[in-house]
Design a protein around this nucleic acid. Sequence first.
DNA 1: CTGAAAGCGCTTACAG
DNA 2: CTGAAAGCGCTTACAG
Lengths: 336, 336
Amino acid sequence: MNVIGGKRGRVTIHDVAAAAGVSISTTSKALNDTGRMSAETRERVKRIAGEVGFRPNALARGLLSKRSFTIGLLTNDTYGRFTLPLMAGVSEALVDHGVSVFLCAIEDDPALGQIHVEAMLEKQVDGIIASGKRVDRHLPVDLSNLPVPVVYAFTEGDANSVTFRSDDAQGARLAVEWLVDIGRRRIVHVTGPDDFFSVRERADAFRAVIGGNGTVLYGHWAESWGQEAVERLWSGKGERPDALFCGNDQIARGAVDALRERGIRVPEDVSVIGFDNWEIVAGQTRPPLTSIDMELKELGRQAGLTVLALAEGRPVEPGVRKLPCRLVVRQSCGGK
Amino acid sequence: MNVIGGKRGRVTIHDVAAAAGVSISTTSKALNDTGRMSAETRERVKRIAGEVGFRPNALARGLLSKRSFTIGLLTNDTYGRFTLPLMAGVSEALVDHGVSVFLCAIEDDPALGQIHVEAMLEKQVDGIIASGKRVDRHLPVDLSNLPVPVVYAFTEGDANSVTFRSDDAQGARLAVEWLVDIGRRRIVHVTGPDDFFSVRERADAFRAVIGGNGTVLYGHWAESWGQEAVERLWSGKGERPDALFCGNDQIARGAVDALRERGIRVPEDVSVIGFDNWEIVAGQTRPPLTSIDMELKELGRQAGLTVLALAEGRPVEPGVRKLPCRLVVRQSCGGK
DNA sequence: CTGAAAGCGCTTACAG
DNA sequence: CTGAAAGCGCTTACAG
């Protein structure tokens, strides 16, 4: 049980071979469960490899196999609201396959993006996942004609590529139908800027469920907009909403706060539903927000498995894959 | 300007050598600005390498040089409040040195941690940064006796290792001195659980500045605790505080909300200061929170540069490095 | 000034 | 059943 090779001088297959008294070919085959040899030899080699702390050099392996068991996750999402759950999913799906993930945050800097892509290619990544925060924007870097497969997530991909995003229309339907189910009839949609493709898609779905005459208020992605929207809706004359479907949790939180400060009870008088299910916002709102979860981790998992498939040459259908959202019920809507 | 090697069949140094009509030795030396040859040859080789889109294989290089230009960032911080800024700093510092970063989120799962460490070592990382969210806790994985250098950030390190953390005492002093400077005299410290080493360190610093008789309320890291603390402080009889120094931005936000709802004006009647400078919380509070920034990105930068130094065999002084915090003035304290 | 050769740590036909 | 040899894509003494 003597351990060779302390700090430096890592132990190589030669050390194992010498210790086991066999050739390195045999050692390699024993360790990889390939070739044919006596079970006794195979076991002995494996045991000795363990004893001397042998760790195969992935660089050498990669040189031969043309696989580095490494992929890159490119993102321009600084805040990390999207990136971290996505990354968690990617990593979770790939760790079982021995794949490690380079995370490259490129902000919106094309030069930085270029540098990171170049570095990843030199390191022979098996594939790249390009992720963003808007499905209607490209990352600031050209990913076409790369020698490795690229999968897109929440960002606009090239023709013939595979792109993952959540199903905004279905998510919006989930929200609105929930409000309708619990008896709300005067639902207003308070959302982000209408130049976001997702915003328009959700608004369309909202109107479709409501029946065409729903009010949609476009604004920006902040609590202050949620507050302002409430002021606007409640200061005018005319009938007041009995429910707000908000474009994200921050808007919803702003709305809930503004309602409470006006003495309007949530959820008794008005139901409010958010979007994103961002724990830090949804969980701390009073009352905690019912929200729509985009299942980012699952999306990351699928994106990871997909680059892997592509890297292994398995066939993958190109196109946009919309993943279903999930309703997360807390207390801001009341209901069943 | 004809481009060899489309999708697969990457172009190697042999292709460049052939195209330039020189040996691969000469090609290598030309590209690396080593060896001696006519300036004409060197230029020509470089030009041709560019034309054929040659990208040196880092796996092959790493095999020779014993350097992979790769490091691993291990973290058990799921939320990403610490990890992402840290990662940004690490990446920013290292990208100029051609180093890419593997991000490994290990939750608190020892088995998962082991797998990730093993994978990184096989991939021959030049070093590892272990990061956590508490300086008084170990990651759930043994990082001693690794064949590569390890640097710690916000987590307890081994003896003789180098550990980065922010200077909590100095940060607390910054906060309290600011409150004193703007004329506050009855300052209460509302903070997290007292089994956190950082909490005790900040509380000690708070008392030292205040003069020994400061009130410290220990609780948990949530808005609800900030609200509860305000109820407690304002519902009793006795003199009311004119300032709250909160242990994080969430507690501060809860406190500000509770004060507003009691009709107490922030910052006119009471100043509130947070800790973390977590934009998403501090920026959305009404009024926006003055807070203490732990400079996580800078910390990441230094941690990155330090593993790099260690990986290159440069001498690094072991020990704990406390990085100074920075006061970020918004509106919740008022003042000059 | 330039190139042939050895070698980094592995795997994989191929020969025996 | 086992091993010698070639080779992945580079770099680096060394020879000429």
